[in-house]
Design a protein around this nucleic acid. Sequence first.
DNA 1: CTTTGTGCAAACGATTTGCAGGATG
DNA 2: CATCCTGCAAATCGTTTGCACAAAG
Lengths: 140, 140
Amino acid sequence: MQKQADRIVQTLKAKGLRVTPQRFAVYTNLLMRHDHPTAEQILSDLNQDAPTSSQATVYLSLQTLRDAGLVREVLLEQGVCRYDAKVEPHHHFRCKCCGEIEDIAWEAFDQLGLRQVRSGLKIDSYEVIVTGMCDRCNTP
Amino acid sequence: MQKQADRIVQTLKAKGLRVTPQRFAVYTNLLMRHDHPTAEQILSDLNQDAPTSSQATVYLSLQTLRDAGLVREVLLEQGVCRYDAKVEPHHHFRCKCCGEIEDIAWEAFDQLGLRQVRSGLKIDSYEVIVTGMCDRCNTP
DNA sequence: CTTTGTGCAAACGATTTGCAGGATG
DNA sequence: CATCCTGCAAATCGTTTGCACAAAG
């Protein structure tokens, strides 16, 4: 998987970011995951075996990656900031029972008549947050 | 406006909540506003003239009101929890330039084909968050 | 009178900052 | 070699908690 690492390095460089081991590790970790981890979860995951990054660096790296548009913040619960390296437009579902978060395909809402929401607003992006019960919690 | 105060008292009682001056003040303040204040903003607003509620009480009152379904949390920015006493379903727009938050009518998204988002998910509610530039920031 | 809410101050968890040394381009 | 990043520890911010007293039903 040398190719993949190279691609990640190129992505970072393309955004004008220096490629440091810590920043690379944070971004790679987030790209490999399928969940929506908090900064804390990324930190402990990275340092599981050997120490990789300090707390401050993980927080700063995430800020940097967010500002570069490589990573998205996902705010679903009060006081909990999650991160997502999947930048293709998509939405989120949160099970209010187990707390699990699932992606929802963008096309599900493609028919949204966003243009005419309100005249005067220049719309950049939108996100739908769905709450309910996942199939696991739903079938006892 | 005695009528209005009575209506608020009745609303609280109907939810089985004790009506204390502090709780009443928090809820009334939120009902009268058109913005989406943080707990901190409500606190300082209430205590502007005379001391009305302590910090802890405002936080607890907001929790209680949220649990009773009288108030909604609005999460648009990392680390900022806003509150909204308008419980009729509606969505939010946030100007990324001035940070202002506007309500968006529910009907704008009424045509959402939510039922068939994904089989297995039992959907409770959803919310659309729109980001962009408001008309004020857009016209220089 | 029993239960629940309040105020205060201390505790807390997540995130940010200042600063000195180190690595990157 | 100038700039930017990292690590550490301390600081900060928003929110929560423990406890004694007060108020609501």
